[in-house]
Amino acid sequence: MGEVVNVVVAFAVIVFIFRWATSSSPANNNNPSPADTLGFRPKNVTQDMVDTIGNMFPDIPRDNIRYELLRTGSVERTTNKILEKGFLDAPPPSYFTLYPRAVLNPTAGAPGPANNATSSSVKPETLISRFNLQSRIKGDAPTVIPEEEVGGKARWEDTPEKREESLRERKAKMILAARQRMLAAQKEKEAA
């Protein structure tokens, strides 16, 4: 019986010492680590990584992108997940305690609630102004672009500069054609 008591006391002392050695200090309890808050150890994420994915998928919220990058640490894995699922899961509320929502610069032209909350004196950026197509619009009558010229298949150019110019021209034609269709639909609506 005496040996059982000694074993129980020794076990209790070992458990006490182990808990004391592995417990965190009281100062650390006020500021929990990101790993404790998120439930995983976050990887290093740069703004370039978030911008890269945000530019490829502008409809995905930046907070969702940053949260997934914190989990994976890889632009490729995050991009593959978006391509497979079509979306990224929203971050939990604990994410926002560590990474408060970023207020977007209203001149950046990024869609979202931050632009809607800006003053009415800031004019929202349009595709026409973003791609500098004001010169192709004369008054209310834009240059008429035949539908067969819009989009379609491009001819492969010899140099990267020519390919880039070809792509830029195709984008411009698509934007102008979309504006042309929008104005025609507005005129029909007004006439009706």
Rank of each mutant, 00 (worst) to 15 (best):
M1K: 08
E3M: 12
V5R: 13
N6A: 14
V7E: 15
V7A: 12
A10D: 14
I14P: 00
A21W: 08
T22G: 00
T22M: 05
S25V: 05
S25D: 08
N28R: 14
A35Q: 15
G39P: 05
P42D: 04
Q47M: 03
Q47C: 00
D48P: 02
D48H: 10
D51L: 08
T52W: 08
I53H: 05
I53L: 15
G54H: 12
N55G: 10
D59N: 14
P61V: 03
E68V: 02
R71G: 00
T72G: 00
G73D: 08
G73T: 07
S74N: 07
R77H: 08
T79D: 02
G86W: 06
G86Y: 02
G86A: 02
P93L: 03
P93F: 00
Y95G: 07
F96V: 05
T97R: 15
Y99T: 07
Y99V: 13
P100V: 09
P100K: 07
R101M: 05
A102G: 03
A102I: 14
L104M: 13
L104S: 11
N105A: 03
P106Y: 03
T107Y: 14
P111M: 09
G112M: 00
G112V: 00
P113L: 10
N116M: 09
T118G: 03
S119K: 07
S119G: 15
S120C: 11
S120F: 06
S121Y: 12
S121H: 10
P124H: 09
E125R: 12
F131E: 10
D140H: 01
P142Q: 05
E149M: 13
K153G: 05
K153N: 09
E161F: 04
S166N: 14
E169F: 03
E169Y: 03
I175E: 00
I175M: 03
A178E: 07
R181N: 07
A184D: 15
E188C: 04
A192M: 08
A192Q: 14
